[in-house]
Simulated scan of single mutants.
Amino acid sequence: MLAIAFDYLLGEPRRMHPVVGFGRLVTVVEKRFNIAPENPRLSLPAGFLAVLLLTVPLLCLAVWVSVTLDGLLLMLAQAVALWLAISLRGLTEHGRSVAEPLHEGDLERAQEQVSRIVSRQASALDERGVAAAATESMLENGADAVFASLFWFLIAGIPGVVVHRMVNTLDAMWGYRNPRFLYFGRAAARLDDLMGWVPARLTALTYMLLGDCKLAWWCWRNQAPQWDSPNAGPVMAAGAGALNVRLGGPSPYPSGVKQRPILGGIQDASSASIEAAITLVRHGVWLWIGVVLAITALILCARHGRTPGGASPPVSWPQRTK
């Protein structure tokens, strides 16, 4: 709750953001280690070693902080770590920076803004293409930047959320299927797939429960397997179905037009679908918080020897007395 409050009130740090600093370090390490990108015998182990070099020291620091601090200091450190990892307010700001000019009919400004959050050739996108790209970005980044961070924080505290954010950043920078990163980025990509498998499906379930449940489930089962990514597929398909919006299809990239499977319903993407995707992510966060609070209440009741209704639990038999 404290981390969500930090994010709502402060947003992302404008200066000295640790993820940005980590990204710069990633660039330096890649230039030093990726010296033979087309040779798998050299590039594969080099990529694996680079992942270890970048993640292990920060993981040790996160573990040290978790073990050393206690009480209010530990709670504050946990809240700050989670705040720096999630990007709910940033997600909203980026999405609305596309939705608002699109709603006003300013396609050129909408193309400029969407180019900041997707890797497609924005100048070649029409109004529907811009809206679809931004809607997809809201749904996918909701899984990567929000729900996965919440999941790994709940599982492993500061070390969990730190490792996931580092691995996800490495995949975002190295996980390309091009000659430069095909082998070098494979370790980061596979590790990101592994860490994102459960959070992605929990995110898809969240979207399904908060939207058009029947259509979302159908899209998840029938359309998700056609997607390239094992984690983005369920998230995008369930999200598109929950919103009843059509996503996917041909998308222009600098390297050419990529044909992608159609996801979702029959309605064309628009500025309204971008806002709907933002709302879906935000409501999903409150759903997760509600579930966590409910589980916490049950655990506290069990520890204090009472059931949620207030009655004492049955006494085990036989009783031993002195």
Results as ranks from 00 to 15, higher is better:
Glu12His: 14
Arg14Tyr: 02
Gly23Glu: 08
Val26Asp: 03
Thr27Ser: 13
Lys31Thr: 13
Asn34His: 03
Asn39Ile: 13
Leu42Tyr: 14
Leu42Met: 14
Phe48His: 04
Val51Trp: 05
Leu52Asn: 10
Leu58Phe: 08
Leu59Phe: 14
Cys60Trp: 12
Ser66Leu: 10
Leu72Ala: 14
Leu72Val: 08
Leu72Tyr: 13
Leu73Ser: 13
Leu74Asn: 01
Met75Leu: 09
Met75Cys: 04
Ala77Pro: 07
Trp83Cys: 10
Ile86Arg: 00
Gly90Phe: 05
Leu91Arg: 09
Ala99Arg: 07
Ala99Tyr: 09
Glu100Tyr: 13
Pro101Cys: 08
Leu102Lys: 06
His103Thr: 03
Glu104Pro: 00
Ala110Cys: 15
Ala110Tyr: 13
Ser115His: 02
Ser115Lys: 06
Ile117Leu: 15
Arg120Phe: 02
Ala124Gly: 01
Leu125Thr: 07
Ala132Asp: 05
Ala133Cys: 11
Glu136Met: 12
Ser137Gln: 07
Met138Val: 15
Leu139Cys: 12
Phe147Pro: 03
Leu154Val: 00
Gly160Tyr: 07
Arg165Asp: 04
Asn168Ala: 06
Thr169His: 11
Gly175Met: 08
Arg177Val: 12
Arg177Lys: 15
Asn178His: 08
Phe181Gln: 01
Phe184Thr: 12
Gly185Trp: 09
Gly185Tyr: 07
Arg186Ile: 00
Ala189Glu: 05
Leu191Thr: 00
Leu194Tyr: 07
Leu194Thr: 06
Gly196Gln: 12
Val198Cys: 09
Pro199Val: 10
Met208Gln: 09
Leu209Asn: 03
Gly211His: 09
Gly211Leu: 08
Cys213Asn: 12
Ala216Asp: 11
Cys219Thr: 02
Arg221Glu: 14
Pro225Val: 02
Asp228Pro: 00
Pro234Leu: 06
Pro234Asn: 05
Val235Thr: 02
Ala242Ser: 13
Leu243Ile: 07
Ser251Trp: 00
Pro252Tyr: 04
Tyr253His: 13
Pro254Gly: 11
Ala272Thr: 01
Ala272Ile: 00
Ala277Tyr: 01
His283Met: 11
Ile289Asn: 12
Leu293Phe: 10
Ala294Val: 05
Thr296Cys: 11
Cys301Ala: 10
Ala302Leu: 14
Arg306Trp: 00
Ser312Gly: 05
Arg320Cys: 03
Lys322Ala: 08
